[in-house]
Structure formats: structure tokens, C-alpha cells
Simulated assay, not measured.
Amino acid sequence: MENAALLKAIIQNAIDGIITIDERGLIETINPAACTLFNYAPEEVVGKNISYLMPPPDRTQHDEYIRRYQHTGVPHIIGIGREVTGLRKDGTTFPFRLGVSEVAYSGRKIYTGFIHDLSRQKEAEEQLKEYATHLEDLVHERTQSLKETVTALQSAKEEVSLSLEKEKELGQLKSRFVSMASHEFRTPLSAIQLSASLVDKYAQAFKSDNIAKHVGKIKNAVGNLTTILNDFLSLEKLEAGKIEPTFTNFDLVKLSEEITEEMQMVAKQNQHIIYQHTGQESMVNLDQNLLKNCVFNLIANAIKYSGENSFIEFNTEINNNACTVVIKDNGIGIPEKDQKHLFEPFFRAHNTGNIPGTGLGLNIVARYTELMQGKIEFNSEVNRGTSFTISFDRI
């Protein structure tokens, strides 16, 4: 008797709602928490079918579940963590997580439903969605602003290139742009990236695919803007003669493995970067930062212009005559008529469509390679893929 009294006290004071029903779906007991959730007194629901607390179409479906159980003996409702909707006395509905267990009692089966209200959780999810949408709109505004600035810069370049004086004016304009971009764009981009990461972290508890999708869009947009900004900064330094290669001895295989691991994290779904080294030696004498930038750029292009479920080959080779780096993909390829312009600044192939890019990456790669006294070559075929080869003679 004491145990029974204790069990009754626990049920009566439980935070979550608890309802028991018989094999016909008729309510036998309902605790105070469940009464509060549904706004019913116990005598108003005891003896009624549990579907009385369900809105359409769940109510009709539940009757079908009961008929199926009576025919087959297999209950549909046994389970934990199913999200369903409840119907209050005033006609309003609310979401809750339902856990149902089967109990054999006095020679018959009783089903106990544990009801956990999800109203506050759903409200929090909606707030997170609204915040993610707000961040996405903010990134879009920044993107448009930067595109307008880039367009204005290109238009100015065409006008001021008519004379030496105009060239000087272009240099001043570009310097102002770089200074402005460094200060005006890097700080808000960092803030957006941090906020998106925090939203992603706080939203993990809700396991919402929509939130994860929108946060992913924000991070991708920030990544694209950062790439654009870095390309312009690199171009400015190159044209100003501020970049001088620093040759040091380093382990090419170790660097390549680090690059592969880092780039795999930003690859598309089921894209795999396969790295392989040929040769007994692994040490080279080059500018490590410039080479890393070149490889990053080429692999990023391979990821961008290849589809999901694809492979990207990344190979290095060191022999007695040369050091060679090869990045090969099976993406959209480069039209033959565009190939002669490929390394020109701001040039983009005609089949890139809406894929984002500045047209500066390959120009920067070619110039970095030249600074290290190397050469870059490529082979490409539309819809078959592209292969880039960077090679350096060994002295």
C-alpha cells in the first residue's frame, strides 16, 4: 500500500502529463499536468477515446490504429520520442513529444502515454530561424555592396587606363579601395561568421535541418566574400611589387597532407580529395606560403566547378629534375575558346553561370608561380574536367 501511495504521488506531481488508456483506446486516468496541458478536468475525459484529445486528421487516423490493433494484435503507438499535436478544450492545439509504453496489469494490457510539452522549444526554434534569416539578409546586403564596389572599380580601370596620369589615378583608387575593404568589410564579416557559428552551436539541441541549412548558407556567403576580399588584396600587393618570395626548405608531403585535410572540410557532399606523392624525397626549396596559396586556390576551384559525389586528384612528385604539383577534377571544364584568356585578371569562362568568383584566382596563381621561377600548365575539356600542373626545376 505504501508503494502504491508513493507511485500515485509521483504521478500526481509529475511535471509531464501522464495518461493511461485501455486496449480500446479509452482513457482510464489522467494526471494534473496533463489536465493543465489540455485544459480539461479529469471527469471530462476519463472514459472517452484518447482521440478526443487529438485534432483532425490525427483523430481519424487513431481510430484506424485501434481497429488495426484489434485485428492484428500489433499496437501502432508503442514508441519513444514521437512528435504529435494535442487539442485543448478551447480548440487550440499545441505540440508535444509522446512516449508510449505497454504495461500488463491484472490480466490485461494498459498503455501509458508520457506527454512532454514542446511549445517553448518550438517558439525558440522559430526565433532562431528568424535570426538566421536576418543574418542571411545582412550577408546579402554586404555582398551587393561589395559587387557594386567591384563593378565601379572595373569601370574606373577602363577609363583611367587611357594615359599615364589616368593609370596613377587608378592606382590611388585601388589603394583606397583596398584600405576601405580591409577595414569596412573584414570586421563585419568576422562578426557575421562568429554569429553564424553561435547560431549553429545553440541550434544543435533542436536538431533542425532548416536552421542548419540557413546557417550553412550564411557561412558559405561569408566564405565567398572573404575569398573575394583576399583576391583583391593579393592583386594589389602583386601590382605594387610588395610580394617577394622567401625560399626555405620544407616538407612538401606534410604541407600537402595538411592542405588536403583542411580543404576536405569545405568540399561538397561526398566530394573526396585524394592525395598521393611520388618519389623518395619530400623536401623542397620554395616559398611555402605562396605555394600553399596556389594549391588552395586550385583545389577550391576544383571543388567549386565539380559536382557532388566526385573525386579530386591531388598529386605531388619529386624527382632528380623537377618538383611537380597536379590538381585534377572531373567538373564542368573550360571551353576551348576561353582557354587562351584563362590567366587574365577578372576573366571568367562563359560556362561558369551563377557559380561565384572574381576571375582573379588563376591570375594570382600564375603570378605566384612565376615569382617562384616555376611554370603552370593545364588541360581541359568541357564536361570532362580540368587538370592543372605546376612545376619547378630542381637546381
Rank of each mutant, 00 (worst) to 15 (best):
H272L: 14
I334P: 05
A267P: 00
I312D: 03
D287C: 15
D287G: 06
T260A: 01
S234C: 13
E317R: 03
V253H: 06
Y305K: 00
I299N: 04
G353L: 02
K292T: 14
S256K: 01
Q264S: 06
Q271C: 15
E262Y: 08
I299C: 07
E281Q: 12
H341G: 01
I334V: 05
L252N: 01
L290E: 05
I327Y: 02
I355E: 07
G331H: 02
K237N: 04
Q271L: 07
N330K: 10
A300G: 07
E258A: 15
D329C: 04
S256N: 14
D251W: 06
C294I: 03
Q271I: 02
N249F: 11
N320V: 06
F311I: 10
C294S: 03
N270H: 14
L252I: 12
Q269G: 13
F296E: 08
I273A: 02
S234R: 11
N293Q: 13
T324W: 01
K340V: 12
N309A: 10
L298F: 09
E344L: 13
E344Y: 06
M263D: 11
L238W: 07
E261A: 13
F232W: 10
I259L: 14
I299R: 00
L286I: 05
C323M: 06
L255D: 08
Q276E: 09
G333W: 04
T324P: 02
A267Q: 02
E262P: 08
Q288W: 07
H350Y: 08
Q271A: 15
G241A: 09
K337F: 14
K242M: 15
N289W: 07
F247R: 08
H341F: 03
S282Y: 11
E344C: 09
D338R: 00
G241C: 12
M283L: 13
H272V: 11
E281W: 11
N309E: 12
V325Y: 05
I318W: 02
N351E: 02
V284W: 01
A267T: 01
N351M: 12
P335Q: 14
K237L: 06
L233E: 10
H350E: 08
E281S: 13
F247A: 13
S282M: 11
P245E: 05
I332P: 00
Q264M: 13
V284G: 03
L286A: 10
A240Q: 08
Q271K: 12
E308F: 12
N297R: 09
I332W: 07
I355C: 09
T316F: 11
N351Q: 00
E313N: 10
N321C: 06
I273W: 02
R348A: 03
L252F: 09
A267L: 00
E308A: 12
F247C: 08
D287K: 05
Y275N: 15
L238T: 00
